[in-house]
Simulated scan of single mutants.
Amino acid sequence: MAIFGAGSSWEGREMKDDFFNDGNYAIGWDYQSAKDLYDAVSLLKAGDIVYLKSNQSGSRTIRVKGIGVVTQTLIHCLIENGQNKETITDESRFYVKIKWIVKDEFRINIPDTDGKLTNVRAATFYEEYLTYVQTEIIGKLFQIKP
């Protein structure tokens, strides 16, 4: 199990409610512009945790918009939708299924003593390695009080 931060704003349009309603997550970039992101999302496994976030480069505050658990991988979603390399024409078909558990927004303020290099959190999609942030996400997901 791993934890991933994921953007949910597509050209200024907030997509979190669509993700919550559809029980999924999609990148929002076309494949030609974001091949590396598609590779990253294709590695998500059932049981991985995804949190929707907003963060500006260099900011020590993460606005978390939701937390969920992957229930079905990208490749399984494609196959179940009858997609293959000849028929895929719409990037909205590239998604993973997610059970969204936390839908309330909250903020994580990273202490000055942790994670000096926070530029990764402004990215569209990344694996979260900072223990402080992981602990906060897991605490909210499983309702663990500090």
Rank of each mutant, 00 (worst) to 15 (best):
R63E: 12
R60N: 06
M1K: 07
R107P: 03
S33A: 13
G5L: 03
G5S: 10
F106I: 14
D104I: 08
I67P: 06
E136A: 08
K103E: 00
S9N: 15
S59W: 09
T73L: 01
I101N: 05
A34L: 11
G28K: 12
T61D: 09
S57E: 03
T124G: 14
K99H: 01
G12C: 09
E127W: 03
R121I: 07
K65S: 09
K85C: 10
W29Y: 10
V69Y: 01
D48C: 04
E86C: 07
K97M: 03
D18P: 01
Y51P: 11
Q56G: 12
I67S: 00
I144C: 08
V41N: 11
A46Q: 06
Q32S: 15
R93P: 04
Y95G: 06
W29E: 10
F20T: 09
K99F: 03
V69W: 00
E80L: 08
C77K: 10
K116N: 05
I49H: 05
R63G: 11
Y51I: 09
L74P: 12
D90F: 08
L141F: 03
V70L: 04
L78Y: 11
V96P: 04
N84P: 09
Y129A: 00
L117M: 07
L74V: 13
I49L: 05
F20W: 06
G28D: 04
A123D: 08
G7D: 14
Y132M: 11
W10D: 15
W100T: 02
N109S: 09
T135N: 06
E105T: 14
F94N: 13
G68M: 07
I101F: 04
G23M: 00
I108H: 05
I88M: 03
R13A: 05
E80K: 12
L130K: 02
D48N: 13
F106L: 12
E11Q: 13
V50R: 08
D90L: 08
A46M: 06
I62T: 04
A2M: 04
D36V: 09
S54W: 06
R121D: 05
T89Y: 03
Y132P: 14
I110A: 04
A34I: 10
G7N: 15
D114H: 02
K103F: 02
W100Q: 00
S9L: 13
C77I: 05
K45E: 01
V41A: 12
G115A: 02
E11D: 14
D39K: 15
A122T: 13
E14I: 12
A6F: 11
I79A: 08
A34D: 09
K85R: 07
L117I: 14
F142I: 10
K85P: 10
V102A: 02
V133Y: 02
Q72F: 00
Q143R: 15
Y31V: 14
H76K: 14
V41S: 10
T71F: 02
G115L: 02
Q72M: 04
I137C: 01
D104A: 03
N21R: 08
V50G: 07
Q72H: 01
A2E: 00
K16M: 12
L78P: 11
Y25A: 06
D22V: 09
G82L: 05
A2K: 01
V70G: 01
A46Y: 03
Y25F: 08
Q134A: 04
Y132G: 14
D30A: 07
D18Q: 00
I88H: 06
T124L: 08
S9A: 14
F125E: 11
K99L: 01
G47I: 01
T135W: 01
